[in-house]
Design a protein around this nucleic acid. Structure first.
Length: 567
RNA sequence: CGGGGCGUAGCGUAGCCCGGUUCAUCGCGCCUGCUUUGGGAGCAGGAAGUCGCAGGUUCGAAUCCUGCCGCCCCGACCA
């Protein structure tokens, strides 16, 4: 491909709407352009990458027996009403105004529609059906470029089985295929066990990539691979325990002390001597929560423990319930359910609120001064705490979800009447799984992980071109001639080449565009080196440069390709 | 949907507070010509803007007021 004839609108400056790295680089390298919030066009270079990703996905899906479909994005609303998901999706689902159609945000319904009445016999199973297609979701707030859009490219696959064991097998196949796909794409990823949420069903795993642009916060162990969303993640932290000498309960005047920090300051004590109180309302009833020191309540864990929604109590309710304002609430004399974090189990000699504004108690003993305290893990994991499995330090960071695999079960087959007959002629609902990969997210995540201050650094697997050939001064006939010969020879040797043949661009412009676009190999042809019959080869990833004699270029290139670039 | 910011030529911006002969600025990019060609060139000339949209105030609005639209960020949300 000749640069002069290509549509590769690179940008020297960063458009003001872009903030995250992948978004900036995709815009600057001329791979995408925004059409509206969360809606992007892929330009030719960007689309080349999308096609490479799609092809990798396709190969690995086919390898596990997947069959590729192409389903309509425009769906009759009727089918979505069969499963109650018009309501479940709510405002996320795009509705067409002048007909009873919706724009599909996923395709469980349509796939089940095709399976029902056709996959009738146990002999028809298992099946794996997939497609790579545009999905539509009316995200309240699109962001981070292509990472969270209203329209995006997703590979979605669905498995159909007749037994839980069959589903396990299909799920396992996808798990393996996904690992191969992300490995081949050159992504550093990890796997998180996740709740399946509104998709329904039981088991599920998320394939995540660490990134500052991420929307999920996870705890991850480099040593053993333990990973969990921070909302459910556990860690090994020492419990506070009991001190040997058990002190008496004593009331202390603490004027205007509202926070643990102020209390520690005022009494010259450590955080670990304090129990922080929070009151939540669960099913209309107050629940008093205790955390050690200044640790925050992890509301997700609380919700899970209590079962059902909770909300923090309003300031007026606090006074009503305890007689004290926020900052002076405590366990002694509290009339209601009390739950303390595990770290506080049976602790004594604690400082906490006295349920009287401007007063705290010292010497609180959870076994003596409060009745029926329940203990639960209510903490939010923090970096460097011990992994729950192997005790190595955990890291907490944000990550992007790239892929998600679910064991759906029979939710959709039952709702839509997709049944099969077993050996005995008995009818059962088909057992399904559902498996997604965000194709454009793969692209963005790769860039998040592979770039420097100059631009993108592609691996060969996803690079739009293998080689970026630059002629520095093409008005020089020797240079032009050498470039043309190299261009032909590379193409004849099956390299995808982007040939910067622009006559009007300065050398610096070409160098910077080449680094920005990020092809794995650059070949630089200039008259100076050409005088000694040499050209320069640069490896984008390492920045290494070699001077190579023209007639040895092809073998040398193949050697570099094999030994360095592909590595 | 709450909070904040922004909208001036393809991109990045000045002017806005204090309305008017600086009133549409500057850099990059673009077009023409010549020169230049190893890290975003030089000279000369040129094209390009409904100042987001609609009302209003005023003799006069990019500037003040009202409404709307769009984009970004934080939060809520995220099958």
């Amino acid at each position: 491909m000749r640069f002069s004839k290509s549509f590769i609108p690179t940008l020297r400056e960063t458009p003001s709407e872009a903030v995250v790295t992948s978004h900036i680089l995709m815009l600057r390298s001329g791979m995408i352009r925004m059409v509206a919030a969360g809606i992007y066009s892929f330009l030719p270079t960007g689309y080349r990458v999308i096609r490479k990703i799609s092809e990798i996905i396709r190969e690995e899906m086919n390898a596990i027996g997947g069959q590729e479909f192409h389903l309509p994005a425009l769906n009759p609303k009727e089918i979505w009403e069969e499963t109650g998901r018009v309501e479940a999706f709510g405002d996320i689902l795009f509705h067409v105004k002048n007909r009873e159609y919706v724009l599909a945000p996923t395709h469980e319904e349509i796939m089940t529609f095709h399976a029902r009445n056709v996959l009738k016999s146990y002999k028809d199973f298992p099946q794996i059906w997939y497609q790579i297609q545009t999905k539509f979701r009316n995200e309240p707030r699109p962001r981070s470029g292509v990472i969270r859009g209203r329209q995006f490219l997703m590979k979605d696959a669905y498995s159909f089985d007749i037994s839980p064991e069959g589903l396990d097998k299909s799920y396992e196949l996808h798990d393996q295929a996904y690992r191969k796909i992300f490995d081949r794409c050159g992504l550093k990823y990890f796997v998180v066990g996740a709740s399946s949420g509104a998709m329904g069903g039981s088991g599920s795993e998320e394939f995540m990539v660490k990134s500052d642009a991420g929307e999920d916060t996870v705890a991850h162990c480099d040593n053993c691979g333990y990973a969990a969303n921070v909302e459910v993640a556990e860690s090994k932290v020492p419990s506070r325990g009991r001190e040997e000498k058990n002190e008496e309960l004593k009331e202390i005047h603490t004027p205007n002390i509202r926070s643990i920090n102020e209390l520690c300051e005022f009494l010259k004590i450590k955080e670990t001597q304090c129990a922080k109180s929070r009151i939540y309302v669960h099913l209309g009833k107050p629940v008093l929560i205790f955390m050690l020191g200044n640790e925050e309540v992890n509301e997700s864990k609380l919700v899970k423990y209590l079962g059902g929604a909770v909300r923090p109590a309003h300031p007026e309710e606090l006074v009503e319930l305890t007689g004290a304002e926020a900052g002076s609430i405590g366990p002694v004399g509290f009339n209601g359910r009390i739950i303390a974090d595990l770290r506080l189990k049976d602790a004594n000699n604690l400082y906490g609120g006295a349920n009287k504004t401007d007063y705290h108690y010292g010497g609180i003993d959870f076994t003596r001064d409060a009745k029926n305290i329940e203990y639960a893990d209510l903490r939010r994991v923090v970096s460097e705490e011990g992994c729950i499995k192997c005790n190595s330090p955990l890291q907490v960071f944000t990550a992007i979800e790239l892929g998600h695999i679910f064991k759906l079960g029979t939710k959709y087959s039952e709702a839509m009447g997709a049944m099969f007959l077993d050996e005995k002629g008995e009818e059962h609902p088909i057992i399904m799984g559902s498996y997604g990969i965000g194709a454009d997210r793969v692209m963005a995540c790769f860039i998040e992980q592979h770039h420097d201050e100059k631009g993108i650094i592609w691996d060969t697997a996803l690079a739009p071109f293998h080689v970026h050939l630059m002629g520095l001064n093409l008005k020089n006939e020797e240079v032009a001639k050498a470039c043309e010969e190299i261009y032909k020879s590379l193409t004849d040797n099956s390299f995808d080449v982007l040939f910067d043949d622009r006559n009007d661009a300065q050398a610096g412009v070409k160098f910077n565009d080449a680094d920005l676009l990020g092809m794995p190999l650059q070949i630089i042809v200039g008259d100076r080196k050409l005088k000694t019959n040499q050209v320069e080869v640069k490896i984008r990833k390492t920045g290494e440069r070699f001077d190579v004699e023209l007639d040895k270029l092809m073998p040398k290139l193949k050697e570099i390709w094999r030994d360095t670039v592909l590595k």
